[in-house]
Design a protein around this nucleic acid. Structure first.
Length: 108
DNA sequence: TGGATGACTTACC
DNA sequence: AGGTAAGCCATCC
């Protein structure tokens, strides 16, 4: 059902930890959404109560109309950005989870 | 029914 | 590194 996806997408976004980010594609994947476009649409109409600032495009940039606000909020959360682009390698939610699970403790 | 649109992605050049 | 094109899914006209 569409409602299911809708809800799951919102839950996934809510689940993004502070100081971390995820791409639309990641959310779509985790929420089993058929397309990243759906994630964008959800945020557009129902993103008021969500940490929408933690959702970025695949290249680490954010949507044009939000750029200013987005970067500001992320910066306040402790997510640095370089000329409007966030380093996904260091702050991407999915990647970090994977690394933390696979990385031997104490290595870093 | 068919085409246009959007807080997207990937591939190619 | 930056531009274009095609694919993508739900919605609206």
């Amino acid at each position: 059902m569409d409602e299911e996806i809708h809800e799951r997408i919102r839950d996934m976004i809510k689940a993004i930890p502070r100081g971390r980010v995820a791409t639309y594609g990641d959310i779509a994947d985790l929420a089993k959404a058929p397309s990243p476009r759906l994630v964008g649409r959800i945020l557009n109409e129902d993103g008021r109560d969500l940490p929408w600032q933690r959702v970025l495009k695949a290249d680490g940039t954010c949507a044009p109309h939000l750029r200013e606000t987005q970067l500001q909020l992320l910066h306040e959360e402790g997510v640095p950005n370089l000329d409007g682009k966030v380093n996904l390698r260091d702050h991407r939610w999915e990647d970090v989870r994977k690394d933390e699970a696979a990385e031997p403790p104490g290595l870093w």
